[in-house]
Design a protein around this nucleic acid. Structure first.
Lengths: 105, 105
DNA sequence: AAAGAATGTAAGCCTTGGCTTACGGTAAGC
DNA sequence: GCTTACCGTAAGCCAAGGCTTACATTCTTT
C-alpha cells in the first residue's frame, strides 16, 4: 500500500495506543515502548507509519528521537469527518422530513 | 476480533467507499455493489461489519435490503476525535509556549 | 578510541481478513 | 405453485501486515 491515510493508520490497536500515549506530550521511543506489550522495534515501526501519515513529528535529541503529535494530521482527519458529518446528516434530516410528511398529510 | 470500533471498520478502502456511497442517501445492496469493483457478496460482508459497528442501519423492503447511514455511529467517532483533538492541541499549545518563553527571555 | 546507550532496519514467521465461488433462503410475479 | 429476483452465509484461497530476533548506525562519554 503506497499511501495510507489517517484512518488506515489509526486502525491498528497497538498503533492507536502509541498515538494515544503521545497525547499527553512528547516521548522518546524507549519510554514509549516500556508501557506497551510489544517490543521496542515494533513501536519503532509503528512510529514510522504514523510519521509517513503526517500524524507525528520526530526530533532528534542526542541519541534519542523524540516523537510528538503533529496537529496537521489530526486536522486532516477532522476535516474528512466533518465533511462526512455534514452531508450525511443533511441526508438523514431530509429523510426524516419526508417520513414526517407522510405521517401528517 | 470480537469488537471493532469505527476506526477499524473505516480503515478498509472498499468499506470506506461503501460507506461514502451511502452518504448521498439509502441504497439497496445490488445498486451499491454495481458501482464498486468487488462482487455483491463482498459488499454484503462489508455491510454486515458496518452494521455491527453501528455505522449503518438496515431496513427490509420486499426482497431488497435498504441500507443507510446511522448518525449515532458517526457521533461516536466524532466524540472520540474531539476528545483527542482537545487534549492533543492543549499539549501542543503548552509546548509552543514553553519554546516561546525560551526564545524571549 | 573504545564502549555503551538509544534507535532504525532487515528477514522471516504467522495470523488476520478481504475476495471469490457456490449454495441456501425469502419475497414478489405470472 | 413455480420461477425469478435479491440477498445473506459458508468455505477456501491468498495477499497484507504486525511481531520478533538479529544486526547496523549514530551519538555521547570517558
Amino acid at each position: 500500500m503506497a499511501y495510507r491515510n489517517a484512518l488506515d493508520v489509526l486502525a491498528d490497536p497497538t498503533r492507536r495506543r502509541v498515538f494515544e500515549r503521545l497525547r499527553r506530550g512528547p516521548l522518546a521511543v524507549g519510554r514509549l515502548a516500556s508501557g506497551l506489550p510489544v517490543s521496542r522495534p515494533a513501536v519503532s515501526q509503528h512510529l514510522k507509519v504514523l510519521k509517513e501519515a503526517g500524524l507525528v513529528r520526530e526530533e532528534q535529541d542526542g541519541t534519542r528521537r523524540i516523537y510528538r503529535i503533529d496537529p496537521r494530521g489530526l486536522a486532516r482527519l477532522r476535516s474528512w469527518l466533518d465533511q462526512f458529518w455534514d452531508t450525511a446528516l443533511d441526508a438523514f434530516k431530509a429523510e426524516v422530513e419526508r417520513e414526517d410528511d407522510k405521517g401528517t398529510p
